[in-house]
């Protein structure tokens, strides 16, 4: 970490000594930040603006980009497939996020009180979080097969229940894929909830007991309000995860990506196909701008709603 020009160590030292301690520290600070600033400007901010710019062009990899105004957006909003994908994306969010949060909270709430084999049971729930989504998507795809190879339909048949089409159904395919995403994320959310529960000082509970509150009242009046920072974090975190779902859908529907009949296609898969199967980079950039807007609005809305409830 030597600094400034190299006319010789003596000159350098004298120059450096002329600064006050405060000035030196400021210079250190900017020296520490130099590489990161280049990184954030070059790899984050500049590409962001470029994505906006590209969304107004017809760039297709092979020919140079030309400005075409809002034509990409007009085309997108007139495309029924886009609106289907839009609905799908929100379906992943609106069903996926609450269901996973409720399940993980219930498990965390009870698991936190269990002492016997606590670590073992916790590990069971946590293990799926460590798996690779692209790998487990294939395991689930196999589970969902019709008889005679499908695990789940095999079970249903054993109980005399009618077999289900799962991935071969426009109604069931999306929830079936969503289950795999919920499954993979559950362990993480449970751990975070447990950490949140443990961070609540026990004096609150003792006070509540003295006041004669029951379990349910304690949960409502003490636990949930005090757990709010954790909940906010998890709501935002899991919402963003569901809005960006890709790995599972891509791998579970390789024969008919996002199918059947686009019923499982999320926005990110549409972006991938537009950009990297059809090379319509400009159109794909417009779709990424929509994704950006959705994520921004959803995150801000959640933060706002959860703050208001206080």
């Amino acid at each position: 970490m030597s600094s400034v020009t190299g006319t010789g160590p003596a000159v350098e030292a004298r120059l450096w000594d002329r600064f006050t301690i405060r000035q030196k520290r400021v210079m250190w600070a900017w020296a520490f930040l130099a590489v990161p600033i280049v990184f954030y400007v070059g790899i984050r901010f500049y590409p962001t603006f470029q994505a906006f710019w590209l969304s107004f062009t017809n760039w297709d990899l092979l020919r140079p980009a030309q400005f075409i105004g809002i034509a990409n957006y007009q085309r997108m909003f007139a495309d029924p497939q886009f609106w289907q994908v839009f609905r799908n994306t929100f379906a992943y969010l609106i069903i996926g996020a609450p269901v996973s949060l409720v399940i993980s909270f219930v498990v965390a709430y009870y698991l936190d009180r269990v002492r016997f084999m606590h670590g073992f049971i916790r590990a069971l729930y946590f293990l799926p979080f460590l798996t690779t989504a692209a790998a487990m998507a294939w395991v689930w795809r196999w589970f969902y097969q019709p008889v005679p190879i499908g695990m789940i339909n095999g079970l249903l048949a054993n109980f005399g229940l009618p077999s289900q089409p799962f991935l071969r159904s426009t109604e069931q395919a999306l929830p079936a894929i969503m289950v795999t995403a919920i499954w993979a994320g559950l362990g993480f959310q449970i751990i975070i909830f447990i950490a949140g529960l443990r961070a609540i000082p026990s004096t609150f509970y003792e006070a509540a007991r003295i006041d004669g509150l029951g379990d349910w009242a304690i949960l409502r009046k003490i636990t949930l309000p005090l757990l709010k920072p954790t909940t906010v974090f998890l709501v935002v975190f899991s919402s963003i995860g569901f809005l960006r779902i890709f790995d599972q859908v891509y791998n579970m529907t390789t024969n008919d990506p996002g199918g059947p009949l686009n019923s499982t296609k999320p926005l990110v898969l549409m972006i991938y196909q537009t950009a990297f199967s059809s090379y319509q980079m400009g159109y794909a950039a417009a779709q990424t701008v929509v994704l950006f807007t959705i994520l921004l609005v959803v995150s801000l809305m959640q933060l706002w709603v959860l703050r208001e409830q206080k």
């Binding site: 500049y46 962001t48 470029q50 590209l54 890709f246 990110v268 994704l291 950006f292």
Partner: peptide, 10 residues
């Protein structure tokens, strides 16, 4: 706030 997917094309 910037999703990776948006940056992928640039």
């Amino acid at each position: 706030m910037i999703p990776t997917e948006m940056l992928v094309i640039p």
